[in-house]
Computed example of a mutant assay.
Amino acid sequence: MAADHPEHSTAGTYTVKGKEFTRDTRYITTRVTRDGRDGFPVEAGRYRLVAARACPWANRTIIVRRLLGLEDAISLGLPGPTHDERSWTFDLDPDGKDPVLGIDRLQDAYLRRDPEYSRGITVPALVDVTTGAVVTNDYAQITLDLSTEWVDHHREGAPDLYPEHLRAEIDEVNAVVFRDVNNGVYRCGFAGSQEAYERAYHRLFDALDLLEERLTTQRYLVGDTITEADVRLFTTLVRFDAVYHGHFKCNRTKLTEMPALWGYARDLFQTPGFGDTIDFAQIKQHYYVVHTDINPTQVVPVGPDLSGWVTPHGREELGGRPFGDGTAPGPVRDDERVDAAHTPLR
């Protein structure tokens, strides 16, 4: 991979500058808000969330949408797990077209927003169904806005994933988790030199060790309920042994060898709204097929054994109330169920 050459990952365009992985974070930052100050007011049925199950950044939005009960307010488009250099594609849908947007490539929705759009065609993307144009692909802000701007459309009993009195601590934890864990695994996997890789490797596992210590004595990352911080860490942890440990060379320790983090990840996986959004087959297909610079044969590993994800975790002993004063989401909609063969939740 040549220095400064643009490539694509599940979260957009990146470059390798001085052999160091650098993510392009120049997203479309238009927001959908209650007051519509950016020209896009909250309106049930107007927007479609395009979010591939394979992508950890998109997976966050699928989880939050489900926890908050926004399925009727915001429809969900699901591209397949692989894409080419141009765009994510809707190859899982009949005739290879999204049934609502009528397009076969997510790129089309970006070009409707900006005919000269030249950055990464990323998921998640919130698309205005009335125009077919992307409103935003700012994944970090999308989930926060689902919690704070879409309140009028939350289900009865929806949890508060971004409680006001904990926001400063959540933001602080999220910053560390993004830098050293969510993005840290990518810095390991796409490092352009031994030195860059080892720096990323040590930062990743130093952060995981701190999280292991933190989660040894508390059930969730911030406070005693599930918050945005848990959603953001979970989507990396659930992919760790299946992808990052081998494919991205994050191989000091498996998740299953870190007791607190493994118990924490299983606790969340078994919580409605988390594990029922995870498609391990699509996750592996995406990373091992798309990243041909890392895996030129495109051979997808058979393992690991997934049965451990549904074993008892014992985290209840630490207390905590998963949904606070709220309740668990109901059953997954029939048209949004993960293929039973792709998950240990059956």
Rank of each mutant, 00 (worst) to 15 (best):
T235Q: 08
V100M: 02
N183V: 03
V290F: 13
G303S: 06
S147L: 03
D114S: 11
D206W: 01
G189F: 06
T253L: 12
T235S: 08
F90K: 05
R346I: 00
D334N: 09
V302W: 00
P124N: 11
G132C: 07
H8G: 09
E198Q: 15
V185S: 12
V177G: 14
T225M: 09
D72M: 03
I28Q: 10
Y264P: 02
T271Y: 04
I226F: 05
N137G: 06
T143Q: 15
L215D: 14
Q141P: 00
H83N: 14
Q282V: 00
F40D: 02
D160H: 05
L215W: 14
K17E: 10
E156W: 02
D180I: 00
D108N: 04
V129H: 03
P301L: 08
P329R: 06
E257N: 03
T216S: 15
D138L: 00
D339S: 05
T217K: 15
S75Q: 05
R219F: 14
A260D: 10
T15H: 11
N251E: 13
I142F: 01
I278D: 10
G330M: 11
C188F: 04
F248V: 07
D4F: 12
Q282D: 14
D180V: 00
Y110L: 08
L144C: 05
I283W: 02
